[in-house]
Amino acid sequence: MPSRAFELLWTTASVPKSGQRADENEDACAANPTAGRFAVADGASEGWRSGPWARHLATAFAKAPPDPASYPAWLASTRLEFPNGQPEALSWYAEEKQAQGAFATLLGVAFRESANGGGAAWKAVAVGDSCVFQVRDGAIVTAFPIDSPGRFSNQPPLVSSTGNGPEPDWFAGRAEIGDEFFLLTDGLAEWFLRESVGGRSAVERLNEHLDNPAAAAFRAWIHDLRQSHALRDDDSTAVRVRLEHARRVETPS
């Protein structure tokens, strides 16, 4: 791996919807910081094994991200590698539900060294309403694939584990040292866009809680947002990636 001018520092936090255990959380995130890849996926409540499918999708992106030309083949092989559920005798609904498959959003971001020097080039793929926000000096400079809080719906496009799904959206951009990227599942993404208009910056508040080393603190904050109806009661996941100068490692010549 050639040395890069930048380093990617990342952190994540996730809280399941009220009354659910951590293992019932159907949001997933995956990271491969060495290769510069990060993904979140949000398993649909109605799907059969949406949580495992979301984890599988996010992990597949972190392992080997697709580009627009390779996406259909990438999805086909990702589906093939998704382990089948239990083969034993199933109830009538388990049988039908398993045939319908699992569904999840996907938001993947990949960084690479910019040929122009200094910063990074980045690209993103999105199916559904999980979002990435590029923030510079506390202000949102890129919002993808949704840029307005009014555009979230209850029926986002989803990647299916069985059938052909919708075409993804793609984005490519440049990043500078000091830029922050927030990958958020829909509830938090909607909150982030809404709260970024005037008032105390959403970036500042999200950073404050992501930086709090006590795991319970993030959970408590999400709980408070739900109680005040600022955030809808859904699985909520955030990943933050910061571009920093690479620490120089002296190598003997």
Binding site: R49, G85, Y93
Partner: peptide
């Protein structure tokens, strides 16, 4: 009723 069950059925239970 069938559709409501299918919407609510998860691998971990209904």
């Amino acid at each position: 009723i069938q559709n409501l069950v299918l919407k609510s059925a998860k691998a971990t239970g209904v």
